[in-house]
């Protein structure tokens, strides 16, 4: 049992998965917050109510959320090649990972912002707060627990995406499980990769819950 495992290869694969998840998560966070904010601010009765921009943004978000991830990677090959210079390896997976998960997170961000008490925003206005102040000192801090728990959910979905990207050569545990495990019929490799992914997921969920509870003062 486990005779086909090579520890150094496994460590490399795990590191690649962590690398892809980490960098893509940062990208998703930034892009998701921006898109979510745009959706929230331009919505009906929003601070920058603007039907046109809202519809455009919502359409982009919905389209990229609707495309199956495996197809999205293929569609983005030319873009990735232009941006990274290759379509293979963990870095080449990043554009697709970010573009695939950011719209999902953007919706969670929008929902989180909408949950902020309207009265509190009104109170900030009555004090004479600028829109920038309202965004950074009211809306974001007041929705922080939801933003963090949303990010946890997104991170876990992201790990799933990295495994899928692995199957078409992105590296990481998905790649390792498919090429070194499945294709060689070495199922002990597949099993160990699964366990490792599960451990990563549980750790992320645990850290996410811990932070959410810590910052939630309601």
């Amino acid at each position: 049992m486990f005779g086909n495992l090579k520890t150094d290869e496994l460590i490399t694969a795990t590191n690649e998965t962590l690398y892809m998840t980490g960098i893509a998560l940062i990208g998703t966070l930034i892009l998701g917050i921006l898109l979510g904010l745009l959706l929230f601010l331009t919505s009906k009765d929003g601070i920058w109510e603007n039907k046109f921009i809202h519809i455009i943004t919502a359409a982009i978000v919905n389209i990229f959320r609707a495309i199956p991830f495996i197809i999205l990677i293929l569609l983005l090959f030319p873009f990735t090649n232009f941006l990274i210079g290759t379509i293979r390896g963990p870095s080449a997976a990043l554009p697709a990972l970010i573009i695939g998960t950011a719209p999902f997170y953007a919706r969670l961000v929008e929902i989180a912002f909408r949950e902020v008490d309207k009265g509190v925003i009104e109170a900030a206005k009555s004090i004479g707060a600028k829109t920038r102040t309202i965004i950074f000192k009211v809306i974001i801090p007041e929705s922080l627990p939801a933003l963090v728990s949303g990010l946890t959910v997104t991170a876990i979905a992201l790990i799933g995406y990295t495994a899928m990207a692995g199957v078409i050569g992105a590296g990481g545990l998905g790649d390792y499980a498919y090429f070194y495990g499945f294709q060689r019929r070495d199922f002990d490799v597949v099993f160990v990769c699964t366990v490792l992914i599960l451990i990563i997921v549980f750790i992320i969920q645990f850290i996410g819950d811990l932070i959410t509870n810590k910052i939630d003062k309601r």
């Binding site: 509190v120 801090p141 007041e142």
Partner: peptide, 14 residues
């Protein structure tokens, strides 16, 4: 112009 509200409208995060 100060204003106070029925439901207080405090920031729970502060």
């Amino acid at each position: 112009i100060g204003m106070i509200f029925q439901h207080f409208n405090l920031l729970w995060s502060r």
